[in-house]
Write a protein that binds this DNA or RNA. Structure first.
Lengths: 346, 346
DNA sequence: TTGAAAGCGATACCAC
DNA sequence: GTGGTATCGCTTTCAA
């Protein structure tokens, strides 16, 4: 049989009305313990499960959240998928994945709307103004995750967003590097027009300026591994002293940079060049490197997102622009201490 | 307005029947060019999109495929999500993500069935026999991806699966290492009961046996980064000669192993120890290492999966057990040649 | 080609 | 607490 049993059939077997069946599967409905038992046993016998499609047709709630992402190369994003979908599952929601090639987000949006999703999470994807409108019109809560389309102050009213405190994070990096006495501090940007890269750089450059100095050299890595490798080669080639410190707009690129520094340029990290990243990627990503990074906690960001979505989907909570704090953390390398443990010697 | 326009409203505005609207949005239906135009313009005016829920209620097709995964730490899986969802999108399907903690797959299954999904892809998750039955009963095609629950020959009839030729892959590794003259070849297993680890090891050990030798040392890494690190420390500690070659059941663990070898044990890879992995992870994962690996192409596996699903969802194609070939590949390290390029010198 | 009407499987609002 | 009935938005016969 292609389809499972219907409420109708369960009702017949249990000798009750279809309404009784429905109520049994509706938390907090008023059913006597007796009929409830009858229904449950009949349902078990037939392998009955309420049809979510039919249900959402009438309740106008699909309990589906669309997650739009453009690329998963950056290890930060798989973490987001995992955490977000697990947390939503716990709240009874499910994640419908959409991979969009950055600019075709509009096309994807049309498909999303067909599924009557209860909410949309846009990660690493920008929404065209026209689409933003069509979403607002449809009344589906939409949360921008990590990256926002418009950083202007007014955009903070009327749109939902969860980002980390990128400016502050950038400033923290500058303060750290200055305190450690570095003098030739370079920067590798991500996508030039992305809010994450812009804000991190602005906080960074601002703090340097406040200290009476500025970025020594700058290149663009486009948030890609290869882009960051090329950028690193550029920064450390040419005439003049090479940088003694490097701030990279995210960890994914920072790892690429460290690969080039250590393996192509024969520089030691952090002895010859101090590298600082941003984001939060699993250890499998930075592996053997010592990486100082501004951590924006996936967990806190996802929590904020779920809370935001939940509030908007149920009540009529006003849109919010949540900025999660971030902090500088030293990811320890697995490089052994001066005196390696005995077990390491055969 | 909470919901978008309905076919009813479009029909009224276009002065046609609701049926006409439906037919306009049904590819290959018979509508005159004239009414079609009227409907389309009315639909555009109202921002109408057919309601996928209502549609699937009657067509008994949700065009949703469930993807069940247990953990995304291994970089191989994000690639699968990306490729699979993109390819399914192109065929008009969408991916509903489920993260299951390995054993709670049964629980997740109940939720999946509520959504009337057209198909299920189980990756890195094993299905309990009882669930397997309940799926078979519901008639929803289900494809096991990469890992299978039962490797017995009879299981190959009646279940869909896509795996790579793990046995052959394991044998290839053994042949390579033997040909290169290594004498103390160690192995790090994944999850002991997983088909991937079992088959890779069996092919590997079989080929060694055929050459009159055997695995020098063996440890278990449980497919986790930390597990593999611990396993590596174990293999290279203790009395006796350390291994001179190491086959690791997947790339994710192989990278952890190389971290330990190079950074804790001060061994050079591949000069002191030759490391061979399995799977296919992006360069961002192996980064600066030189890694020989048995590549099981994500692309080929996903293609096979989509094809399999598609066949089962539409026609009544018989279940198939697809084994994708794999090949040994040397992932080149970015370590420079003996004479580094000029640009690398400031 | 077109429109009217009958469902798909469930929930919600009624009276009882 | 319970059962009947309208309804959600659409596809699908079936006549016209």
């Amino acid at each position: 049989m292609k389809s499972s049993a219907t409420a109708q059939e369960v009702a017949r077997l249990a000798q009750v009305s279809q309404s009784a069946v429905s109520r049994t599967f509706t938390p907090g409905a008023s059913v006597s313990e007796q009929t409830r038992a009858k229904v449950l046993s009949a349902a078990a016998a037939l392998g009955y499960r309420p049809n979510a499609m039919a249900r959402s047709l009438i309740t106008r709630q699909s309990r589906i959240v669309a997650l739009v992402m453009s690329y998963l190369e950056n290890q930060f994003y798989p973490l987001v998928i995992q955490d977000l979908s697990q947390k939503l599952q716990k709240q009874g929601y499910h994640v419908l994945m959409f991979i969009s090639d950055l600019d075709e987000a509009d096309e994807v949006m049309a498909e999303i709307l067909q599924y009557q999703v209860d909410g949309i999470v846009l990660a690493s994807t920008m929404l065209s103004p026209s689409l933003a409108n069509s979403c607002a019109a449809s009344g589906i809560p939409i949360v921008q995750f990590n990256r926002v389309a418009d950083t202007s102050a007014k955009a903070r009213y009327g749109t939902n967003a969860v980002t980390s405190d990128n400016r502050r994070g950038g400033a923290l990096v500058a303060e750290l590097l200055l305190a450690r006495g570095f003098e030739r501090i370079a920067f590798i940007a991500g996508l030039e027009r992305s809010s994450t890269s812009l804000e991190r750089e602005s906080g960074f450059a601002g703090a340097l300026a406040k200290a009476g100095t500025q970025v020594y050299r700058r290149a663009v890595g486009h948030y890609s591994f290869d882009g960051a490798k090329a950028a690193t080669r550029t920064l450390f080639s040419g005439t003049g002293e090479p940088p003694d410190a490097l701030f990279v707009a995210n960890d994914h690129m920072a790892i690429a940079a460290m690969d080039v520094l250590r393996n192509e340029l024969q520089l030691r990290v952090p002895e010859d060049v101090s590298v600082v990243g941003f984001d939060d990627v699993p250890q499998a990503a930075w592996g053997a490197y010592q990486l100082t990074t501004v951590v924006q906690s996936v967990e806190r960001m996802v929590n904020a997102t779920v809370e935001l979505l939940h509030g908007q989907m149920l009540g009529n909570a006003p849109p919010r622009y949540v900025v999660v704090p971030c902090e500088l953390v030293l990811r320890k390398s697995v490089r052994p201490p001066a005196d390696p443990p005995d077990t390491a010697r055969a």
